Amino acid sequence: MADRAQPYREPPPAADALVRWPDRWGTRFLLTVDVEEEFDWGAPLDRAQRSTTAMRAFPDAHRRFADQGAPLTCLVDHPIATDPASVEVLREVLADGRSAIGAQLHAWVNPPFEEERRAGDSFPGALPETLEAAKLDRLTDAIAGAFGTPPRIYRAGRYGIGPNTRRLLRERGYLADSSVRAHYSYVGEGGPDFGAVGNHAYRVDGLLELPLTTVFTGRARAAGARLFGPLGMLPRGRGVAARSGLLSRVALTPEGMPLADALRAVDIAVGDGVRLLVFSFHSPSLAPGHTPYVRDAEDLRRFWAWWTAMFARLERLGVRAASLDEVLAAADQV
Results as ranks from 00 to 15, higher is better:
L175I: 14
D177C: 04
D177R: 05
V180A: 03
V180E: 02
A182F: 00
A182E: 00
H183F: 07
Y184H: 12
S185V: 12
S185P: 13
S185Y: 00
Y186E: 14
V187C: 09
G188D: 09
G191Y: 03
P192A: 09
P192Q: 04
D193T: 02
G195V: 04
A196W: 00
A196C: 06
V197L: 12
V197Q: 14
V197S: 11
V197P: 12
G198V: 00
H200W: 13
D205T: 08
G206W: 08
L207S: 13
L208P: 07
E209R: 01
L212Q: 03
T213V: 00
T213N: 00
T214V: 13
T217G: 14
G218W: 07
G218A: 09
R219S: 04
A220G: 07
R221Q: 13
R221W: 01
A223V: 06
A223L: 13
G224M: 03
G224A: 06
A225I: 01
R226T: 15
R226C: 13
R226Q: 13
L227D: 14
G229S: 11
G229Y: 04
G229K: 02
M233N: 15
M233A: 15
L234M: 15
L234D: 10
P235D: 04
R236K: 11
G237Y: 07
G237I: 06
G239L: 11
G239I: 05
V240N: 08
V240L: 10
A242K: 14
R243W: 14
R243T: 15
S244F: 09
G245I: 01
G245H: 14
G245N: 14
L247H: 05
R249T: 00
V250R: 05
A251R: 00
A251Y: 00
T253I: 00
T253A: 01
P254I: 01
P254M: 06
G256V: 05
G256L: 07
M257I: 08
M257E: 15
L259H: 03
A260S: 10
A260R: 06
A260W: 05
D261Y: 07
D261A: 14
D261L: 14
L263F: 03
L263M: 09
L263G: 07
R264Y: 04
A265D: 08
V266C: 08
D267S: 06
D267P: 13
V270P: 06
V270H: 09
V270Q: 10
G271C: 06
G271K: 05
D272L: 03
R275W: 08
L276Q: 03
L277M: 11
V278E: 08
V278S: 09
V278Q: 12
F279L: 12
S280L: 02
S280A: 06
F281Q: 08
S283V: 02
S285P: 14
A287V: 06
G289E: 10
H290M: 09
H290Y: 12
T291V: 10
P292I: 03
Y293D: 15
V294E: 05
R295H: 04
D296T: 10
D296E: 15
D299T: 01
L300E: 13
